[in-house]
Simulated assay, not measured.
Amino acid sequence: MNAPSRLAALVLALGSATALAAPEVLLFPALGRPDSVTLQGRVLAEAPRGSTALSRNVRRLTTRNQKGARVEVSFLEASATVTSDEDGDFQVTFQSPPGRPFPAGAHQAQARVADNTPATARVEVLADAAPFLVVSDFDDTVAISEVTQPDKLVTNALLRDADTQKVVPGMASFYGCLGAGSGAVPGFALVSGSPIQFGPRVGSFLARHGFPAGFGLYLRDLGPSTLSGYKQPLIRSLLQRFPHPVVLVGDSGEKDPEVYAQIREEFPGRVRAIYIRDAGNTQDAARFKDMLLFKDASTAAEHAARVGLAPRECIATAFPPATPRAEQGTP
Rank of each mutant, 00 (worst) to 15 (best):
73 V>H: 06
148 T>I: 10
254 E>F: 04
131 P>M: 10
10 L>R: 15
48 P>V: 14
17 A>K: 05
254 E>P: 00
135 V>Q: 06
14 L>E: 11
223 G>D: 09
329 G>I: 08
33 R>L: 13
112 R>G: 02
142 V>P: 00
159 L>N: 13
87 D>V: 06
212 P>H: 13
302 E>K: 15
322 A>V: 14
75 F>A: 09
148 T>C: 03
165 Q>H: 08
42 R>L: 10
126 L>P: 03
13 A>F: 10
220 R>F: 10
154 V>W: 12
271 V>A: 11
74 S>H: 07
132 F>I: 05
207 A>I: 05
13 A>Q: 08
52 T>A: 12
51 S>D: 07
245 P>S: 04
75 F>P: 01
253 G>D: 11
206 L>K: 03
195 P>H: 01
17 A>D: 09
314 C>Q: 05
218 Y>I: 00
231 K>C: 00
248 L>G: 01
289 K>N: 11
251 D>P: 03
110 Q>E: 08
113 V>Y: 05
26 L>S: 03
87 D>A: 14
63 T>W: 08
113 V>W: 11
63 T>A: 15
63 T>H: 11
324 P>C: 15
216 G>C: 10
163 D>N: 14
137 D>T: 10
188 F>W: 04
55 S>K: 13
229 G>C: 12
201 R>V: 00
291 M>W: 05
191 V>R: 06
293 L>Q: 10
101 P>A: 15
74 S>K: 09
30 A>F: 02
286 A>I: 09
63 T>P: 08
139 D>E: 11
213 A>N: 09
185 V>T: 08
169 P>G: 06
260 Y>K: 06
30 A>Q: 04
176 G>I: 10
217 L>T: 01
201 R>F: 00
297 A>K: 01
43 V>C: 05
13 A>K: 08
117 T>F: 14
301 A>Q: 01
41 G>C: 07
